[in-house]
Design a protein around this nucleic acid. Structure first.
Lengths: 248, 248
DNA sequence: CGTCTCAATATGTATATACATAATTGCCAT
DNA sequence: ATGGCAATTATGTATATACATATTGAGACG
């Protein structure tokens, strides 16, 4: 009776059962169909519902528990946990606007520009699988006399061909892209780091000084568009995000 | 020959094998002993090293892969991924969950606790206008053996009187508050900084080393509830946030 | 000399089974 | 009633096994 059907689980996609259980239950929880506190079916019941072994159900539920969506109690069952995730509103920030909000004159400078075939690093940053042309840019943003942020950017020319003809001397890549490419998804990574020589020079700070790094990847309809890394000298910059719980 | 020894794996703690494999490998990666790109032993080899079945090893490695610490390639093996730990969405994050998602044992320690009348600084941080009682806490969160985050917290006792009776020895203030106080608004500030003496000591890093600072203020129905400042050693931590435009 | 095929290999997913552990239920004796 | 002691139950962890699937590497062939 062993008949491993990794695919085509009764007319579906080519997904593993494990995945299917996971998404089914996540769906029910995130959609609110199963409210916080609700007891989800016992492993035993899911076993018959999905016609699989307890191990499979158990693995999926354990993962949901680790992700914080459910809470498991021996002898009692598994329950939907209360809060829910809060969407972060970190907005695509425009450095010019930030600087001008401080009442300081904004200035932009393009340091370097290079069109090349994507390296493995480039592809990793952009999330590309196949090689192709990319545009690599390095820029500086000033607030008054002082360097405010260092920008290192990759643009996937397969997605935005016209960028290959632009020099980016008079306009920063951010505003240029926003006007041209509708983005459908973005991912931010925020961390602290010690300034490397190269960047420290550009920002006129000491090598090793703490900096805030904001990296952003943007997709347009599943196509990777650009990757950008902003480096701000510490103390000069704070990100602010506000939340209101998405109701209870 | 089945002899499930959930405990006392050759003179150790009462930890599951699964956990032990997870922390062993995480430890090697996070400490740098296994550099990015390094091929970790095949499942087959770990099977003999830990004297267990492949399923157990497989579960642990799959979890590490999901946590982003390693990358698995069929026919080639499993490799340490480049950057560092990531995880942590920019929600109301629970440090315990972050740490456990890395497969490391979580430990919490309260360093200091002080009930006092609010100073001007306290009021500024909490956003209070009138003086009153506050509870000041200092805590440390560990991932395995190493300090993971330093927490400095103020609780407005006018809003949460019961907190004054709690020692916070067995439970961290975050989870304690979440279970008790419905929050209606929160504000995050994120920046980089150089570790001050005091914090560097606690985190076991060098004074002046770059750190990521996450501050959060929380309100419940217009009443300031708490202000907390988490300090993470740089490189050990990255915030990740995903967006999809909310259309308009 | 390139390329095509095939076997070997490491991971991926699933099963059936076994025993451990914690919590609740219910029963029994006091 | 009630305090304590099983029995039951649901989850937790581990094993051995089976087959799927992707990729590498070596050998066959045009």
């Amino acid at each position: 009776m062993s008949m491993i059907e990794t695919m085509e689980a009764e007319g579906g996609e080519a997904v593993s059962l494990h995945q299917r259980i996971l998404s089914d239950i996540s769906e029910k929880i995130l959609s609110g169909a199963w409210a916080p506190g609700h007891r989800i079916p016992f492993e035993h019941e899911l076993t018959t519902e999905y016609n699989c072994s307890r191990m499979t159900v158990n693995k999926a539920l354990s993962q949901l528990a680790k992700a914080g969506l459910i809470e498991r109690r021996r002898r009692s069952g598994s329950f939907v946990r209360q809060p829910q995730s809060q969407a972060a509103v970190l907005e695509l920030h425009d450095i010019r606007i930030e600087v001008e909000a401080l009442g300081l004159p904004y200035r932009y400078e393009r340091l370097a520009r290079l069109k090349r075939r994507s390296s493995a690093d480039d592809r990793a940053l952009l999330g590309l699988s196949a090689p192709g042309l990319v545009l690599s840019l390095e820029c500086l943003h000033f607030a008054g006399q002082r360097p405010f942020a260092h920008e290192q950017r990759l643009i996937n020319l397969a997605a935005v061909a016209e960028a290959g003809e632009e020099e980016f001397l008079g306009i920063a890549p951010g505003p240029w892209l926003i006007g041209r490419v509708p983005w459908s998804q973005a991912e931010h990574r925020i961390r602290a780091t010690a300034a490397a020589d190269h960047v420290a020079d550009a920002l006129d700070i000491e090598t090793g000084a703490p900096c805030l790094v904001v990296e952003r990847r943007t997709w347009s309809a599943e196509h990777p568009v650009t990757h950008v890394r902003f480096i701000y000298p510490a103390e000069s910059h704070t990100l602010v995000a506000r939340f209101t719980p998405s109701q209870g």
